[in-house]
Design a protein around this nucleic acid. Structure first.
Ligand SMILES: [Mn+2]
Ligand SMILES: [Mn+2]
Ligand SMILES: [Zn+2]
Ligand SMILES: [Zn+2]
Lengths: 148, 148
DNA sequence: GTGAGACTTTGAATCATTCTAATTAGTCAA
DNA sequence: TTGACTAATTAGAATGATTCAAAGTCTCAC
């Protein structure tokens, strides 16, 4: 089911890795492909299992390494919810996360710039924040799930 | 250094526990006292070490149990930051958390109701959220730290 | 005073993540 | 081609926060 990367995505990967002095490897490409294929915020184990289908020799440690590398060069974001396993998200636009209590699924919620601004505005003087994480928890109506 | 609870706080503890059919014990009182004494979002280990000063026989498991009980009856909130140890916060007013990258300290940031409203407003139809967690990360100017 | 149930304690188990050491693969110079 | 150098990958051990299981203690209603 996992197609390969589009030229654009491959370029994106290559550029981000090169920019931080790292190389494109077949493992990194496989892991990145998995992340882009199904944007459902998979855990490391889920990435591992999906990537193994196309690259049977891949090791779990390498999946950890690849994901850490990607986070380091800004290709993906980590998503933590309470103490559950870390999930990974290749959506680079500013967004919050919504976790469906019932299904455990994590959905992206676009964050309009004015909301971000109003959040920064509540910081007292002297507080300077680069990163804001917002996570909702509740129920999301089923809707579809086929594409995406 | 750890005084005991004010009558008001003891009442608060008693009421919340009773409401969920649980008892006030000396361990629970000690742990709650520690949480109120220094509102610096301590980890379980920090709570454990502080509480042991006044109750040497206290066990780590009991600290876990007490804190879980408090969270369950709404007396305290858990505060998670990435995969670090969970911290605990007895501030019940709606607030976000600011983590100082440099010191690791966690500060409370009051959340005005209109900001909460504007956040709920970005949820697409069908998404219904009870809980919103907001955490900032960055630097906070030293300021004091004597009291509080 | 007894018994039941709630609570606490100790120490073992879990499990996501990180670490270590050993291999492999890629790159470049000779 | 070969060798050397380096980055990346691998397997498996170690870590560490948290949870679990079993046994002991306390409290309170009877
Ligand atoms: Mn859903
Ligand atoms: Mn500070
Ligand atoms: Zn996302
Ligand atoms: Zn707080």
């Amino acid at each position: 089911m996992i197609q390969s990367l589009t030229d654009l995505d491959r370029e994106h990967l290559q550029e981000a890795l090169n920019k931080s002095g790292q190389k494109v490897t077949s493992q990194r490409e496989a892991v990145f492909t998995v992340l882009l294929a199904e944007r459902d915020h998979p855990t490391v184990d889920e990435v591992f299992n999906r990537a193994r289908e196309v690259m049977p020799g891949l090791s779990l440690a390498t999946v950890y390494n690849c994901l850490e590398t990607f986070v380091g060069c800004g290709l993906v974001r980590q998503v933590n919810h309470e103490r559950e396993s870390t999930r990974y998200c290749p959506n680079l636009s500013p967004h919050a996360h919504f976790r469906d209590k019932e299904t455990g699924r994590v959905h992206d919620i676009e964050l309009p710039p004015e909301v971000i601004k109003s959040l920064r505005a509540i910081l007292p003087p002297g507080f300077d924040s680069e990163i804001i994480e917002i996570s909702f928890q509740g129920r999301a109506q089923a809707k579809d799930n086929s594409a995406n």
